[in-house]
Amino acid sequence: MKVWIAHQEGRELLGPQPAGVEVEICADAATLPSDPAEVRFWVPPFSAVGRAADLLAKLTGLRVVQLLSAGADKWAGQVPPGVQLCDASGVHDASVAEWVLGAVIGSLRRFPAFARAQQRHEWAPEAFTPAPELTGKRVLIVGAGSIGRAVEERLAPFEVTVTRVARTARPEQDVHGVGDLPGLLPAAEIVVLLVPLTEQTRGLVDGSFLAALPDGALLVNAARGPVVDTAALLTEVATGRIGAALDVTDPEPLPAGHPLWDLPNVLITPHVGGAVAGLLPRAYRLAGAQLRRFAAGEPLVNRVVDGY
């Protein structure tokens, strides 16, 4: 069985594989290592999405696409019938949760402002009013999946009050449905977005969502850029009433001249929430386990189904 993976180091990271599995490196969709019609299992590089349609047409024997990303929204409609699409849910929990915690603390404690002061060689603590603190805050996690749980675990030492929201309510787990948001937002001092991008979540955070937040609230987007209406966000944060920490934007990348760059109450990072040294080992451990399941005829995990 022929397998294509995206990284040379992935050969070892996959772990032991059954006899008959042939692993090849396909790091660039423009440079194919062998006949694509023979490939049964594909682990594409992160950058493959743009050319995926052209390559998928050549992978006529393909049965599994195992992504390295937790989100599969960019693959919607790309994978032909009969091919299982699986995401890397679970792989990015720790790294994204770390980013969320760092972004929240950095934003509340005004690290970006201090970094700018450092560049100017200014030591002027009197120029800053006492900063808000994370301790005791009311946190609303929109996207109560595995990353949401990882975020909540890391927030626990700060004595916060966490409210969870998912696509559908799960009362037995104290999880609200999206329909409850209007009643929850006015009490939310920090809102963390962790939902996948779907037709239901696109534009979820609009003008009315933002207007319902209390003064001084912080919006943290570690999901996908289009979950937030950028124009509505810009209108709200430009007043200084609320702040934002964004690892994703719409459009992405954010154009150099976009006004969000210059707002002192907005922290922006270039979609690096999952970009840590441990990413590839974790991702390829998952891919290796999936490959062994597939070779043994066992059901795969993390399958992306209709309605993702």
Rank of each mutant, 00 (worst) to 15 (best):
G225S: 10
P281S: 15
T201N: 12
G145M: 04
S34H: 14
P45K: 14
K74F: 10
H7C: 04
G106C: 04
P171Q: 07
A6S: 13
V160R: 00
F114E: 01
R293S: 02
T201K: 08
L234T: 05
V91A: 12
P132C: 06
P81Q: 15
V220E: 04
R285G: 03
P299G: 05
L254Q: 15
P125A: 12
D180P: 07
Y308C: 00
A97I: 03
A52F: 07
A37N: 05
P80M: 10
V205D: 02
H271A: 14
R282Q: 05
G15F: 14
E252D: 09
A124R: 08
R116E: 12
V276C: 04
S34E: 14
V96S: 08
G307E: 06
V205T: 00
A296W: 00
A127S: 12
G307M: 06
A150H: 08
G106V: 02
R109G: 01
G136V: 03
D215P: 00
R241Q: 08
D174H: 14
E9Q: 13
A88K: 11
P226T: 02
R303L: 04
A97P: 11
E159M: 04
L213E: 01
V175C: 07
T163R: 15
P36D: 08
F294K: 03
E159V: 03
P196F: 06
V142C: 04
S107Q: 07
T60G: 01
Q8G: 06
P281V: 14
L246I: 12
V304Q: 00
T31N: 04
P264S: 15
D73N: 14
A295H: 00
L185F: 15
A222W: 09
E189L: 03
E24F: 03
F46G: 08
G90A: 14
V96G: 11
V83R: 05
G179A: 09
Q66Y: 10
D250M: 14
V39L: 10
L85D: 10
A150T: 05
L108Y: 09
G273I: 01
Q173W: 14
P226Y: 00
G240L: 13
